[in-house]
């Protein structure tokens, strides 16, 4: 028996949804800028001692959550990882509520109980971000059980390292057997913590692993907003039409180390340079201008996004810490 072939995802010219207008991409670019500004702000605030514990920054990977969420309806479901600030912001979490959460403030999206790694925003369909590698895959698979009833789709964001977890293999099989409307989005940034992906990935292929389960898959340039959105739109269509799960391997690179304690010296400098030239923000900006968006319009959304993040950080810094005596925590939902 031959393995299922990697099916090309249809080009994003679905009759109802259609190719987004340049304005939509400009808005999406603005969201990417917000995520970049968010990560840089959190980085600065961490060094000042305002962000506690650890954080995992997603700078360099912004096109993936933003491109995928362009293809989603607002009430579709998603789950993210401990490198999940971009997942939350792309899904609709307000920068101020997310920043306040990082700072452990009462106005945080989870009231300061979650912190950087475990953000939940059910109002925006974010079932959770999971501090343990692979957890997001199961959460989105389960949300797809609800989605199947409701006509909603579900997206699992996870990294290359998660594809070596039981969660990945069990859930891909589970989702295929039940034909669940779930999209498995692997953000392959080529390093699992400090270890190169190829050194710990048998067979060296990630997307193709989905083929073993009969799931259509595609390798996507994860630094190209247009490519990500197109692939996601095809997968969303397939899910909504009842054709089951799809796997997208979006190749990308993180600008920072794995976590706050990692200067990422294990990465060759020429490799980093090469990826920085393909910074998803640069790629998107260039494409917007090539598509006829004016430099002034691009600068305007950049300025607005930066201002939005500055205001969010100021508000978060001014917010109170949660008062442990104000309201007794309950172990169980009453």
């Amino acid at each position: 028996m031959s393995a299922p072939e990697a099916r090309r995802v249809e080009s994003p010219t679905a009759p109802e949804r259609g190719e987004p207008a340049a304005r939509d991409y400009l808005d999406a670019y603005a969201r990417m800028v917000v995520i970049r500004e968010f990560e840089q702000t959190i980085h600065r605030l961490f060094l000042k001692g305002e962000v506690h514990g650890t954080t995992h920054l997603s700078a360099g990977q912004e096109a993936i959550p933003v491109g995928v969420c362009m293809a989603l309806a607002p009430d579709d479901y998603a789950s993210g990882t401990y490198r999940g600030h971009g997942h939350a912001l792309a899904k609709g979490t307000a920068p101020e509520a997310l920043a306040a959460e990082m700072l452990g403030r009462a106005t945080g999206v989870c009231g300061g109980r979650a912190g950087s790694m475990n953000v939940v925003d059910l109002e925006h369909g974010l079932v959770g971000c999971f501090g343990i590698v692979g957890g997001s895959i199961a959460a989105a698979t389960g949300a797809a059980l609800s989605g199947k009833r409701e006509g909603r789709v579900s997206v699992a964001f996870f990294g290359d390292g998660a594809t070596n977890q039981a969660y990945f293999h069990e859930c891909l099989n589970f989702a295929k057997v039940l034909e669940l409307p779930v999209i498995f989005v692997c953000e392959n940034n080529f390093y699992g913590e400090f270890t190169p992906m190829l050194r710990v990935t048998g067979g060296g292929e990630i997307a193709a692993r989905a083929g073993a389960y009969g799931i259509p898959f595609e390798v996507v340039d994860g630094n190209d907003l247009w490519a990500v959105r197109a692939a996601a739109a095809g997968a969303v269509e397939r899910a909504r039409s009842g054709a089951g799960p799809t796997m997208l391997e979006c190749q990308t690179y993180r600008h920072f180390g794995h976590s706050k304690s990692d200067p990422a010296r294990y990465r060759p400098s020429e490799e980093l340079e090469r990826w920085l030239e393909r910074d998803p923000l640069t790629v998107a900006r260039r494409r917007l201008l090539a598509e006829g968006v004016s430099e002034a319009d691009v600068e305007a959304v950049e300025t607005e996004a930066q201002g939005e993040m500055e205001r969010a950080a100021e508000a978060a810094l001014a917010a109170p810490y949660p008062d442990p005596h104000e309201r007794p925590a309950t172990e169980f939902k009453p």
Binding site: G128, A138, A143, S154, E170, C171
Partner: peptide, 13 residues
């Protein structure tokens, strides 16, 4: 693991 994880995702939604 998938069973329990799927139950979690379904329950959360």
């Amino acid at each position: 693991l998938a069973l329990a994880g799927a139950a979690f995702g379904a329950a959360a939604t």
